[in-house]
Simulated scan of single mutants.
Amino acid sequence: MAAKKGMRGWGRLRPLPSKRYQASYIGPDGRLHKAPATFAAKIDAQGWLSAEQRKIELGVWRDPREAPKTVLTVRDYAERWQSESSSRLKPRTLDLYRSYLNRVILPGLGDVALNQLTVNDVRGWFAGLESYPTRNANAYSLLKTIMNQALDDELIAVNPCRIKRASVKHRVAEPVALSAREIQSLADSMTVDRWKALLLVAGFSGLRWGELAALRRSDFVLSGGENSVTVRRSVTRQAGRFVVGRPKSAAALRTVPLPSGLAFAIAGHLEELALAGSSGLAFPSLTGDFPHENTVRPHLKRAALVIGYNSFRFHDLRHSAATLFAQAGATLADHMTLMGHTSSTMSARYTHSTAARNKDLVEGMWPPE
């Protein structure tokens, strides 16, 4: 008689929707016994079955239900989840997740049994967090992701993370969108010449800080009627050192045209302040290393005060460029390409701002009386 699908010569293996494997067997007591956890690889599940079969053959098998049970906590499962995710996540993302676990999630929920975590537990934990909206939303999203995996592994019956809009990020401060002339004035107001061109490139290209900090001389083209900058890499600060890697996403690998009026300022900066050679850093620190945003920030805040802004962040330069692209008539597809967005939702926030201009264009289609 042919064995049923999922059956072995002894014991049973069952693939789960999560692509993990569940192992079980009929013990000497005539009862069905399941492995205490699922397995990432089929061979591991087979190994567990072989070990159980060997115990029976040697006469040392005991009913696992009679042995003291080890409680699988949220902490245990979260650690396992991050370990299994390490190969598919970027180092910077892993560091962020580790920070959310250690500082936000595990102090309040780590010791709770995984299969005993309730909606009320999660709601109470979330309500008791300090007022850091973005951090809290990210931590909640991470917890929900981990619990979804536990659900796929059939370790819990339902995901207890069911707080409406808990993962929605709320702005603490409204972003500032500078005009083109204000970006120029901001750069002129910088008291340190080394960072003037950096601000101009940021304000007219929309590059992220990590992309700007990693730029080399060869990433700029300022001749032959073409003025552009190409994003090939990004740099992050991890455990006190700079780490160069790929940008945030595949869409971030892009070439962004620059206004021809910037060519002179950029060329002068590269000649005087960039490191030597085609691979030399375009915007190095005084020590010749990658620049740190904390070094630029105080000078930027002082320059912003000069042009009348009491609150200004470096990321506002990216927001300014995004707004200028939209006001210049960039389509949604154009905007996504220029900004390196993977989601049309992000670019739509800016292209929608051209609705008034579109109304004028449509009115202009009507023939004059």
Score class of each variant (00 low, 15 high):
93 T>M: 09
86 S>M: 14
334 D>T: 10
159 N>D: 11
180 A>C: 02
200 L>G: 01
320 S>M: 09
5 K>N: 09
35 A>E: 06
56 I>N: 05
299 H>K: 13
334 D>I: 04
254 R>V: 05
207 L>I: 08
2 A>C: 07
369 E>S: 13
254 R>P: 06
365 M>S: 12
169 K>I: 12
114 L>H: 02
28 P>R: 04
104 V>F: 01
95 D>H: 14
349 R>L: 10
117 L>N: 03
265 A>N: 04
75 R>A: 12
308 G>Q: 03
27 G>T: 05
97 Y>A: 06
123 R>H: 08
190 M>E: 01
235 V>S: 09
224 G>F: 07
206 G>L: 08
83 S>G: 12
92 R>P: 05
90 K>S: 11
3 A>M: 13
37 A>K: 13
91 P>S: 03
62 R>W: 00
74 V>C: 02
112 V>T: 15
286 L>D: 14
69 K>F: 00
11 G>H: 04
240 G>M: 03
112 V>I: 15
347 S>R: 04
83 S>L: 15
274 A>T: 05
38 T>I: 05
75 R>P: 00
244 V>N: 08
357 R>F: 11
44 D>Y: 01
310 N>C: 05
58 L>F: 08
300 L>G: 05
356 A>R: 15
11 G>D: 10
244 V>W: 02
226 E>Y: 10
273 L>S: 11
229 V>I: 10
208 R>Y: 00
230 T>F: 01
354 T>K: 13
301 K>Q: 13
348 A>W: 09
88 R>Q: 07
311 S>M: 11
91 P>C: 05
126 F>N: 02
57 E>T: 07
114 L>N: 03
52 E>C: 10
34 K>N: 14
89 L>P: 09
275 L>E: 07
347 S>H: 07
15 P>R: 13
280 G>F: 06
116 Q>F: 00
105 I>L: 11
163 I>C: 09
210 G>V: 10
144 K>A: 15
156 I>T: 08
44 D>V: 03
113 A>M: 10
160 P>V: 06
290 F>S: 01
47 G>P: 08
247 P>S: 12
85 S>P: 04
20 R>N: 06
307 I>N: 09
254 R>W: 03
320 S>E: 05
215 L>Q: 09
325 F>V: 05
335 H>F: 02
56 I>G: 04
147 M>K: 02
268 G>W: 04
127 A>I: 00
241 R>P: 02
290 F>G: 02
42 K>D: 01
19 K>H: 11
310 N>W: 03
350 Y>A: 09
284 P>Y: 00
299 H>S: 15
1 M>E: 12
9 G>A: 15
170 H>S: 12
42 K>E: 12
75 R>N: 09
77 Y>A: 04
182 E>M: 01
297 R>E: 08
24 S>I: 07
364 G>E: 06
88 R>V: 10
125 W>E: 04
343 S>M: 12
199 L>H: 01
146 I>P: 01
169 K>L: 09
249 S>C: 11
317 L>N: 00
78 A>T: 11
297 R>T: 11
